[in-house]
Design a binder for these strands. Structure first.
Lengths: 228, 228
DNA sequence: AGATGAGAGTAGACAATGTCAACATCGTGA
DNA sequence: TCACGATGTTGACATTGTCTACTCTCATCT
C-alpha cells in the first residue's frame, strides 16, 4: 500500500477534482497523439489514480470523449466570439469568425474531428445534450453577424427571415467546414498558404452569398435538430 | 463460389482469395455497424478462417482500413463518372457530380469518414499510395467538367489555367465536402429534404463561382500533394 | 461525540482484441 | 521428387474496457 514516492508527502485518498483532471489529461493526450485511441487507463495513470477511478465520473469512454468534445465546442465558440471583438464592419466580423473556425480546426485536427467526426451520436443515439448546446451557441455568433448586415444588407432576426438566415448559414458553415477538413487532411494545400487560401475561398463565398441572398431559402434547419 | 460446407464437403485449407474476402467483409461490417471499431478477428470469423489469417494479407488493421478506403474512393469515382453520362451541359454534369458525391457520403457515412476522416495518414505518415491515386482519379472527373465550361465559359486545361481550375475545385470540393459532413452528422437537416437542400447550395455555389471565375487563383494545389 | 451512509478511489477478475512466434498444409518449380 | 514459399492455424501475451466487491473519507443526523 506504500504508494508514496516522496519523503513524507502523501497524496490524499481523494483526488479533489478528478473529473476535470481526466478531461484535461484527455485533451493533452488527444492534442499530442492526434488520435482518440488512447486508453482510459492511460488517463488514469496520468492523473495518478487507479485504472477504475474514472468510471466514477464517466459511464464509459464514449461519455468521456463527449465531455472532451464539449470543451472543444466551448473553446471554439469562445475563439469565434473573441475574434469579432473590436471589429465594426459586420462583414469583417463574419470573416473573422470564419478565420477563427478554420484556424481552430487546423490547429487541433483530432479535437475538431472528435467534435464533428460523428464518433459520438449519429441519427441513432443523439449526441449528449451538453454537446448540442455548445454547438448551438456557436451558431448564435454567426447569426448575429449575418443579421447585422454581413451579407450586404440588414436581415432582421425575425421569424420571417429564419429560412433566409438558415440558408445562408448552411452555405457559410458547410464551406468553412469543408475547407477546414480538406486542409486538415492535407488534401489541399500547401499548408504554408493556409491563410491566403482560406481568405480567397471566404471572400468568394461572401460575395456569392451577397448576390443571391433573397433566393436562398429552402426548408432548412441549421444546428441541433429543432424537434427535440 | 462454392463456399458451402454442407454435408461432407470440407473447406480447402487455402481460402483462395482471402484478401478480397476480408475487404468485403470489412465493407459489410462497416456499412452495417457504421463504425470502424470492428475487430480483425470478427472479419476472420466471417470469412471462416482463423483469427490470424488476415495478417498474411495486411500488416495491421490500419493497412486493412486503407484498403477499404481505397475501394470507397473507387466506388465514389465510379459513381461520379457514371452520373455524368448522357448529360450534355457541362454545368449539368458538374451538378450531377456534386449530387453523386453528397449522395455517396450520406448513404454510407462511416465509409465516407474512413476515406476523408484522417484515420489514416496525416501530414506525418502519408496515406498509402493506393489511396492517393484513387483520390486523384476523383479529381480528374471534376476537372473535366470545369474545363468543358461548367462555370460559364471554357477553361482550357493548360498549365496557365492550373491555378484557376484548382481554385474553383477547391471551392467546389470544400462546399460539397462540408455539406456532406454536416448532413451526415445531422447538424443540418431535415434529412428528408437532403436533395432539395443540396440543390440549393449547389446552384448557389455554381453561380457564385461563375461570377468570380477570373479572380479565384491563389497558390493552391488540390488533390494529393504534388511534390511526391 | 458517535453512528451512518453516500460519494470517491482501489483491487481483482474477465472476455475480447491486436499482434507475435512457431507450426501445418498446399501448390509449384527445380 | 522434393524443398520452398505463400497461405492458414494454434497458442501465447500484454493491453484494454468494464464488471463486482471492497475500502476510505467526510459531512450529516441523532
Amino acid at each position: 500500500m506504500t504508494k508514496d514516492i516522496s519523503t513524507t508527502e502523501q497524496r490524499p485518498y481523494h483526488h479533489g477534482d478528478l473529473h476535470r483532471a481526466i478531461v484535461e489529461a484527455a485533451l493533452d493526450v488527444l492534442s499530442e497523439s492526434q488520435s482518440t485511441e488512447f486508453s482510459l487507463r492511460e488517463l488514469a495513470r496520468r492523473a495518478g489514480v487507479s485504472h477504475n477511478a474514472p468510471y466514477k465520473h464517466f459511464a464509459d469512454k464514449r461519455e468521456l470523449l463527449a465531455a472532451v468534445s464539449a470543451v472543444g465546442f466551448e473553446l471554439l465558440a469562445k475563439r469565434m466570439a473573441d475574434a469579432t471583438k473590436e471589429l465594426d464592419s459586420p462583414r469583417e466580423r463574419l470573416a473573422a469568425i470564419a478565420r477563427a473556425y478554420v484556424c481552430g480546426g487546423v490547429n487541433n485536427p483530432a479535437l475538431y474531428r472528435l467534435m464533428f467526426g460523428g464518433y459520438l451520436g449519429g441519427q441513432d443515439n443523439g449526441r449528449p445534450a451538453i454537446e448540442r448546446t455548445a454547438a448551438y451557441s456557436m451558431k448564435a455568433v454567426v447569426v448575429e453577424a449575418i443579421c447585422d448586415g454581413a451579407l450586404g444588407r440588414l436581415i432582421p432576426n425575425t421569424a420571417a427571415n429564419t429560412r433566409t438566415i438558415d440558408g445562408a448559414i448552411l452555405i457559410f458553415w458547410s464551406q468553412m467546414h469543408g475547407l477546414t477538413l480538406l486542409l486538415v487532411d492535407s488534401l489541399v494545400g500547401p499548408s504554408g498558404k493556409i491563410e491566403e487560401l482560406s481568405e480567397g475561398v471566404l471572400q468568394g463565398m461572401l460575395d456569392g452569398l451577397s448576390n443571391c441572398i433573397p433566393e436562398i431559402p429552402v426548408g432548412v434547419w441549421v444546428g441541433p435538430p429543432p424537434a427535440e
